[in-house]
């Protein structure tokens, strides 16, 4: 028993290290890649060798090399700097388009799963309708009404993207609400809001968190795609998708114009996918040990 107590002591001493030590390799890799990209975004002004919008007509369509690591585009702008600054735009877009809808989606889903009845039935039918159409088509329809631009992308995503989270949370709540600990707090006379938000929500959020990692990537791709179609971020802002769109016309002569931002999207995607994967495993395991 003494040995056990001692072990607890030593492992308790540094919870951060202990936490990191228990991560799987995919979680570690994903976290490292994502951290790198976040740091690049945060420190872009210090890292970037050039102003992302500075045009240099002496150096048009330079191939990757020195001093232009990723080459230059048709206006002589440094692609490396633009990719760095682009991370700021894309990560922010990814963050808001993922976590804002997730927040209310999960809450709505949790309520629907717990309460059932009218609220649930109506909410689920709304979700069915929203999910019956391809996501991109609905977004384009809304943008066609509201007009292009990043603000309107946010609005259209906020209108639609919560449905997936609501579905996931509802499905988990249907299982969770039958568990005895949820009944116990009901028997203890706790109000419904407290039961759902404090006791239910933390236990139904796992699959949404896992899904959010891949959703993040999908949303960046979505906005990139919309920018590519001219509905999203407007030039000259260095958004990755918009940059690919600009590079399309030069793909035969200057492959790097479209490829370099493409790599950035790929790296972000891989990083977040690994995190999602690692989280799924980890939360699954935790879940498993409690069962």
């Amino acid at each position: 028993m003494a040995a056990v107590a001692e072990e607890r002591q030593t492992t308790r001493r540094n919870p951060l290290l202990r936490e990191l030590g228990s991560w799987s390799s995919s979680l570690k890799c994903g976290a490292a890649i994502t951290l790198l990209i976040v740091l690049a975004a945060v420190f872009a002004p210090w890292i970037a060798p050039y102003d992302p919008n500075a045009q240099d007509f002496e150096a048009l369509l330079m191939p990757p090399g020195w001093p232009h690591l990723f080459g230059t585009d048709s206006l002589g702008r440094d692609i490396f700097s633009r990719v760095l600054y682009g991370a700021r735009i894309d990560l922010v877009i990814g963050f808001f388009t993922t976590y804002v809808p997730m927040t209310y989606g999960v809450v709505l889903g949790a309520y629907a799963g717990y309460k059932g009845g009218w609220f649930d039935a109506v909410l689920m039918r709304i979700i069915d309708v929203a999910m019956a159409f391809p996501f991109l088509v609905l977004i384009i329809v809304i943008l066609a009404i509201l007009g292009p631009g990043i603000q309107n992308i946010y609005i259209s995503v906020f209108i639609l993207a919560w449905t997936m989270y609501a579905r996931l949370a509802r499905a988990e709540m249907l299982v969770e609400r039958t568990k005895d600990y949820m009944t116990a707090v009901k028997v203890l006379g706790f109000p419904q809001r407290r039961i759902i938000l404090r006791h239910g929500l933390p236990n139904v959020i796992n699959s949404s968190i896992v899904f959010s990692a891949s959703d993040f990537v999908l949303n960046i791709l979505l906005v990139s795609g919309l920018s590519f179609l001219g509905l999203g971020v407007q030039p000259p802002l260095p958004e990755w998708g918009a940059m690919i769109a600009e590079g399309r016309d030069f793909i035969r002569d200057a492959w790097w114009m479209a490829t370099m931002p493409g790599f950035a999207i790929l790296a972000t995607g891989v990083g977040l996918a690994l995190i999602g994967d690692g989280l799924a495993q980890r939360l699954g395991e935790r879940h498993h040990t409690t069962v």
């Binding site: 568990k179 005895d180 600990y181 009944t183 116990a184 203890l188 069962v291």
Partner: peptide, 15 residues
Amino acid sequence: VQMVFQDPYSSLNPR
């Protein structure tokens, strides 16, 4: 009036 449950694995909030 209180209740005690059958399944000790689900009667406590895991978090």
